[in-house]
Computed example of a mutant assay.
Amino acid sequence: MSRVPMTVAGEAALRAELEQLKTKDRPKVIADIAEARAHGDLKENAEYHAAREQQGFIEGRIRELEYKLSLAQVIDVSKIPHTGKVIFGVTVSLVNLDTDEEVSYQIVGDDEADIKKQKISVNSPIARALIGKEEGDVTAVNTPAGMTEYEITRVTHTV
């Protein structure tokens, strides 16, 4: 499997979640299982079955996070010289040429994408249309509403 691009903040968030799962959530669910076992008959013990199910979710998420972090290629955009070119990790300010609406997006890895925080996946159609372009360029993006043209007004290297 190939490397997966990730910002410094994205890697830190995944590592924090992994730490939470390993140091707090896993021991708590183990204690819950032990307590439920003490109640007796496991066949009709809903607390036991719920705790075991939760343990399965936690262990699965731990494996998933460890796998993603093993493939991560962390890119610190603040250490890359600013050229005005759109690359992974930058924040791009755009103007919709049809509506004059201004928007800004940070181009991040798949796991970090959150449109409410103006973070879009590097694999999204708009990010793919922007990568490699420069400030002042106009690019067309195929959206559900049809082709939309955007002008790149600013590219910033933020952490």
Rank of each mutant, 00 (worst) to 15 (best):
M6A: 08
M6F: 06
M6V: 11
E11S: 08
A13Y: 00
R15P: 01
A16H: 14
E17Y: 13
L18N: 06
E19N: 14
E19I: 09
L21K: 07
K22G: 02
T23K: 15
D25Y: 10
P27D: 10
P27Q: 08
V29N: 07
A31G: 11
A31R: 13
D32K: 06
I33R: 05
R37V: 07
G40H: 01
D41Y: 08
D41I: 01
N45F: 07
E47G: 11
A51V: 00
R52Y: 07
E53H: 12
E53L: 13
Q54F: 09
G56F: 04
F57R: 15
I58S: 10
L69F: 06
L69T: 06
S70C: 08
A72H: 05
V74K: 07
I75Y: 03
T83D: 13
K85D: 03
I87R: 11
S93H: 04
N96W: 05
D98G: 06
S104E: 12
V108S: 00
D111F: 10
E112I: 00
E112Q: 03
I115G: 00
K116F: 10
K119H: 06
V122K: 00
S124I: 08
S124F: 10
S124Q: 05
A127R: 05
A129K: 02
T139G: 06
T139H: 08
A140K: 09
V141R: 01
V141N: 02
N142L: 12
T143M: 09
A145F: 14
G146W: 07
T156C: 02
T156L: 13
T156S: 13
H157C: 04
H157F: 03
